[in-house]
Protein backbone atom coordinates (compact mmCIF):
# COMPACT_ATOMS: atom_id res chain seq x y z
CA UNK A 1 0.00 0.00 0.00
CA UNK A 2 3.04 2.19 -0.29
CA UNK A 3 1.79 4.08 -3.30
CA UNK A 4 -1.24 5.68 -1.69
CA UNK A 5 -1.33 9.39 -2.25
CA UNK A 6 -1.43 10.80 1.22
CA UNK A 7 -2.53 14.23 0.04
CA UNK A 8 -5.79 13.14 -1.50
CA UNK A 9 -6.77 9.87 0.05
CA UNK A 10 -9.47 10.04 2.61
CA UNK A 11 -8.25 8.10 5.62
CA UNK A 12 -11.07 8.74 7.95
CA UNK A 13 -14.84 8.62 7.62
CA UNK A 14 -15.45 10.19 11.01
CA UNK A 15 -16.59 13.76 11.41
CA UNK A 16 -13.37 14.74 13.17
CA UNK A 17 -12.32 16.87 10.21
CA UNK A 18 -15.57 18.81 10.08
CA UNK A 19 -15.81 22.41 11.12
CA UNK A 20 -17.26 25.68 9.84
CA UNK A 21 -16.83 26.74 6.19
CA UNK A 22 -14.06 29.14 5.23
CA UNK A 23 -14.83 32.84 5.53
CA UNK A 24 -13.40 34.64 2.54
CA UNK A 25 -12.81 38.37 2.13
CA UNK A 26 -14.59 39.93 -0.87
CA UNK A 27 -11.23 40.03 -2.65
CA UNK A 28 -10.54 36.33 -1.96
CA UNK A 29 -14.00 35.49 -3.20
CA UNK A 30 -13.36 37.37 -6.46
CA UNK A 31 -10.09 35.53 -6.89
CA UNK A 32 -11.87 32.23 -6.36
CA UNK A 33 -14.46 33.05 -9.02
CA UNK A 34 -11.69 34.00 -11.44
CA UNK A 35 -9.85 30.76 -10.69
CA UNK A 36 -13.01 28.84 -11.51
CA UNK A 37 -13.52 30.70 -14.77
CA UNK A 38 -9.93 30.08 -15.80
CA UNK A 39 -10.06 26.44 -14.80
CA UNK A 40 -13.34 25.85 -16.65
CA UNK A 41 -13.49 28.51 -19.35
CA UNK A 42 -16.73 28.52 -21.35
CA UNK A 43 -17.28 31.60 -23.48
CA UNK A 44 -21.02 31.02 -23.44
CA UNK A 45 -21.36 30.91 -19.64
CA UNK A 46 -22.47 34.00 -17.69
CA UNK A 47 -21.22 34.64 -14.14
CA UNK A 48 -24.10 32.86 -12.36
CA UNK A 49 -22.81 29.30 -12.67
CA UNK A 50 -19.30 30.33 -11.55
CA UNK A 51 -20.69 32.23 -8.56
CA UNK A 52 -22.78 29.23 -7.52
CA UNK A 53 -19.77 26.98 -7.98
CA UNK A 54 -17.74 29.28 -5.72
CA UNK A 55 -20.50 28.88 -3.11
CA UNK A 56 -20.17 25.11 -3.41
CA UNK A 57 -16.39 25.28 -2.97
CA UNK A 58 -16.73 27.36 0.18
CA UNK A 59 -19.45 25.08 1.51
CA UNK A 60 -17.27 22.03 0.93
CA UNK A 61 -14.51 23.43 3.13
CA UNK A 62 -16.78 22.65 6.07
CA UNK A 63 -15.80 19.01 5.55
CA UNK A 64 -12.14 19.73 6.07
CA UNK A 65 -10.90 22.13 8.74
CA UNK A 66 -7.44 22.35 7.24
CA UNK A 67 -8.79 23.45 3.89
CA UNK A 68 -11.19 25.90 5.55
CA UNK A 69 -8.25 27.56 7.28
CA UNK A 70 -5.91 27.64 4.28
CA UNK A 71 -8.22 28.49 1.37
CA UNK A 72 -8.17 32.26 1.99
CA UNK A 73 -4.38 32.53 2.39
CA UNK A 74 -3.85 30.26 -0.64
CA UNK A 75 -6.02 32.58 -2.74
CA UNK A 76 -4.07 35.61 -1.43
CA UNK A 77 -0.96 33.85 -2.67
CA UNK A 78 -2.25 34.19 -6.24
CA UNK A 79 -2.25 37.96 -5.80
CA UNK A 80 1.25 37.86 -4.38
CA UNK A 81 2.72 35.90 -7.28
CA UNK A 82 1.02 38.07 -9.89
CA UNK A 83 2.53 41.34 -8.72
CA UNK A 84 -0.29 41.99 -6.32
CA UNK A 85 -3.15 41.74 -8.79
CA UNK A 86 -4.33 38.32 -9.94
CA UNK A 87 -7.61 39.86 -11.05
CA UNK A 88 -5.77 42.29 -13.33
CA UNK A 89 -3.56 39.68 -14.97
CA UNK A 90 -4.44 38.61 -18.52
CA UNK A 91 -6.21 35.28 -18.98
CA UNK A 92 -3.08 33.86 -20.49
CA UNK A 93 -0.80 34.92 -17.65
CA UNK A 94 -3.26 33.90 -14.98
CA UNK A 95 -3.78 30.48 -16.58
CA UNK A 96 -0.03 29.92 -16.71
CA UNK A 97 0.19 30.76 -13.01
CA UNK A 98 -2.54 28.24 -12.29
CA UNK A 99 -0.70 25.60 -14.31
CA UNK A 100 2.20 26.07 -11.90
CA UNK A 101 -0.18 25.37 -9.05
CA UNK A 102 -2.02 22.50 -10.70
CA UNK A 103 -0.89 19.91 -8.16
CA UNK A 104 -1.29 22.03 -5.05
CA UNK A 105 -3.76 20.26 -2.74
CA UNK A 106 -5.97 23.33 -2.45
CA UNK A 107 -6.29 23.75 -6.20
CA UNK A 108 -6.95 20.05 -6.64
CA UNK A 109 -9.63 20.23 -3.99
CA UNK A 110 -11.21 23.29 -5.58
CA UNK A 111 -11.31 21.48 -8.92
CA UNK A 112 -12.67 18.33 -7.31
CA UNK A 113 -15.67 20.22 -5.98
CA UNK A 114 -16.02 22.58 -8.93
CA UNK A 115 -16.11 19.96 -11.67
CA UNK A 116 -19.09 18.41 -9.91
CA UNK A 117 -20.90 21.62 -8.94
CA UNK A 118 -20.45 23.52 -12.19
CA UNK A 119 -21.71 20.77 -14.46
CA UNK A 120 -24.53 19.86 -12.10
CA UNK A 121 -25.94 23.36 -12.55
CA UNK A 122 -29.30 23.59 -14.34
CA UNK A 123 -28.31 26.73 -16.23
CA UNK A 124 -25.14 25.01 -17.43
CA UNK A 125 -27.17 22.04 -18.65
CA UNK A 126 -29.26 24.37 -20.75
CA UNK A 127 -26.20 26.14 -22.10
CA UNK A 128 -24.69 22.80 -23.12
CA UNK A 129 -27.96 21.61 -24.65
CA UNK A 130 -28.83 18.94 -22.11
CA UNK A 131 -32.48 18.55 -21.23
CA UNK A 132 -32.31 17.05 -17.73
CA UNK A 133 -34.98 14.84 -16.13
CA UNK A 134 -37.24 13.24 -18.73
CA UNK A 135 -39.38 10.54 -17.15
CA UNK A 136 -42.03 13.01 -16.01
CA UNK A 137 -42.39 14.13 -19.62
CA UNK A 138 -42.83 10.61 -20.90
CA UNK A 139 -39.16 10.05 -21.65
CA UNK A 140 -37.91 10.75 -25.16
CA UNK A 141 -40.09 8.15 -26.85
CA UNK A 142 -42.12 10.87 -28.55
CA UNK A 143 -39.61 13.65 -28.01
CA UNK A 144 -36.79 12.85 -30.34
CA UNK A 145 -34.85 9.80 -29.10
CA UNK A 146 -34.47 8.86 -32.77
CA UNK A 147 -34.62 12.23 -34.51
CA UNK A 148 -31.09 12.21 -35.91
CA UNK A 149 -31.48 12.89 -39.63
CA UNK A 150 -27.97 13.42 -40.96
CA UNK A 151 -27.15 9.73 -41.24
CA UNK A 152 -29.17 6.92 -42.82
CA UNK A 153 -31.27 4.61 -40.68
CA UNK A 154 -29.17 1.75 -39.36
CA UNK A 155 -29.97 -1.95 -39.04
CA UNK A 156 -31.06 -2.88 -35.52
CA UNK A 157 -31.28 -6.67 -35.89
CA UNK A 158 -28.27 -8.93 -35.63
CA UNK A 159 -26.28 -9.77 -38.76
CA UNK A 160 -27.98 -12.65 -40.50
CA UNK A 161 -25.05 -13.89 -42.59
CA UNK A 162 -22.24 -16.16 -41.45
CA UNK A 163 -21.85 -16.33 -37.66
CA UNK A 164 -18.70 -14.64 -36.50
CA UNK A 165 -15.52 -16.64 -36.15
CA UNK A 166 -14.69 -16.42 -32.47
CA UNK A 167 -11.30 -18.07 -32.69
CA UNK A 168 -9.00 -16.87 -35.45
CA UNK A 169 -5.92 -18.61 -36.77
CA UNK A 170 -4.92 -19.90 -33.39
CA UNK A 171 -3.65 -23.16 -34.80
CA UNK A 172 -1.43 -21.53 -37.41
CA UNK A 173 0.08 -19.13 -34.93
CA UNK A 174 0.94 -21.65 -32.27
Amino acid sequence: MADKDSATIKRDTSSALRGGPATLTPRQRQILVRVLRLAYPHDSFPDGPYERTADAVVEATADDRRLAATLGPDLDMLDTISDGDFLGASDETATLLLREYADEPYFRQIRGVAVVALYDDREVWELLGYEGPSFDQGGYLHRGFDDLDWLPEARITEYDGEPRTELRDVEEQR
Binding site: Y140, D146, D147, A154, R155, I156, E158, Y159
Partner: peptide
Protein backbone atom coordinates in the same frame (compact mmCIF):
# COMPACT_ATOMS: atom_id res chain seq x y z
CA UNK B 1 -37.97 -7.92 -30.55
CA UNK B 2 -34.92 -5.68 -31.04
CA UNK B 3 -34.75 -2.32 -29.28
CA UNK B 4 -35.34 0.57 -31.68
CA UNK B 5 -32.32 2.69 -32.61
CA UNK B 6 -31.70 5.87 -30.65
CA UNK B 7 -29.53 8.69 -31.98
CA UNK B 8 -26.36 7.45 -30.30
CA UNK B 9 -26.89 4.04 -31.91
CA UNK B 10 -27.51 5.51 -35.35
CA UNK B 11 -24.07 7.15 -35.27
CA UNK B 12 -22.44 4.02 -33.83
CA UNK B 13 -24.03 1.58 -36.29
CA UNK B 14 -23.40 3.74 -39.35
CA UNK B 15 -19.77 4.02 -38.30
CA UNK B 16 -19.60 0.28 -37.75
CA UNK B 17 -21.05 -0.51 -41.17
CA UNK B 18 -18.72 1.91 -42.95
CA UNK B 19 -15.73 0.59 -41.00
CA UNK B 20 -16.51 -2.90 -42.29
CA UNK B 21 -17.95 -4.37 -39.12
CA UNK B 22 -20.92 -6.72 -39.45
CA UNK B 23 -21.88 -7.97 -36.01
CA UNK B 24 -23.66 -4.94 -34.66
CA UNK B 25 -27.22 -4.62 -33.33
CA UNK B 26 -29.23 -2.86 -30.62
Amino acid sequence: PPMPANNNYTVFANGAERAGYRYYAT
